[in-house]
Structures are given as structure tokens and as C-alpha cells.
């Protein structure tokens, strides 16, 4: 080995494996801790735990009626709600640990599990 200067087939294979490891490791480390579970609280149903990786639509029944929650591509948003102000729909889409959607009149709370790793806002 001491006098071998040209790359060998083993070197090229190693190089290919390392290059392949870069996007694979990025995919493996991309999700933050706890961002794969969605906690859904509604009354009287209580707390449900939903797999955030699975797309779907959920009907959450509360005192005012049914709030429809859609989960797609790791993001969640309220599609329809019986509350008068429709603030919950204007909250838009949430994804990532610690993010919250709430429909207070209809007693619905949706939250991605885990600690948020950034600030909620900055005041100057």
C-alpha cells in the first residue's frame, strides 16, 4: 500500500458510499425530536395522538359542531370550523414541534409534540 498512489476500486467504492451517505444522513437527521406525533384535544373526545407522517382528514366534534382538520405532508391546518370568528382557519398551516392550532369556541386544540426550538416572536 505504501507505494500505491493511484486510487483503487475500493477507494472509489468508499467515495461513492460517503457521497451517498450525505443525503441519507440529511434525511435521517432532518426531523426534530417529537415532530412525528400530533396531539389533538377536543371535548368531549379528549386527547388523540395522530401519526403526523400519515395524510388524512379528521372530524373533531365540539360544543359548536364539527371542526375539520387536514394533515398533509407533515403539516396540519383547519379546513372548516363552526366558530363565528374563523380565527382557527386563519392560523394557517403548522408543522414542527411545539406549533399549535386552536379553536377556542369549539374547544379544539391541535399541537405537534415536542419542544419548539426557536422563539415565538421578537420584540424590538
Amino acid at each position: 500500500m505504501a507505494t500505491r498512489r493511484r486510487p483503487t476500486a475500493g477507494d472509489l467504492l468508499l467515495l461513492a458510499l460517503l457521497i451517498a451517505a450525505v443525503p441519507l444522513s440529511r434525511r435521517a437527521t432532518a426531523s426534530g425530536p417529537g415532530s412525528e406525533r400530533l396531539l389533538v384535544r377536543s371535548e368531549p373526545a379528549g386527547v388523540q395522538v395522530v401519526d403526523a407522517r400519515r395524510d388524512g382528514e379528521f372530524a373533531l366534534v365540539g360544543p359548536l359542531g364539527t371542526t375539520r382538520l387536514r394533515l398533509q405532508g407533515g403539516a396540519a391546518w383547519i379546513v372548516e370550523s363552526p366558530c363565528p370568528g374563523q380565527l382557527c382557519r386563519r392560523m394557517g398551516r403548522i408543522s414542527g414541534p411545539g406549533r399549535v392550532l386552536a379553536c377556542v369556541p369549539n374547544r379544539v386544540l391541535v399541537q405537534f409534540e415536542g419542544q419548539a426550538d426557536d422563539v415565538d416572536g421578537v420584540s424590538r
Binding site: M1, R4, R5, R6, P7, T8, G10, D11, L14, L15, L18, A21
Partner: peptide, 20 residues
């Protein structure tokens, strides 16, 4: 790598492994 892979790779491959 040097001990068990002398036929597989050159110092470049050894260095790649060490760096990783």
C-alpha cells in the same frame, strides 16, 4: 483499514475512512 484492507484501498481510501 491499513491492517485489514491493504489490498482494498490506497492511502486515499484510508484517509477517507479516517476523515469520516
Amino acid at each position: 483499514a491499513v491492517r485489514w484492507g491493504e489490498r482494498l484501498w490506497s492511502p486515499i481510501g484510508v484517509s477517507l475512512l479516517g476523515s469520516a
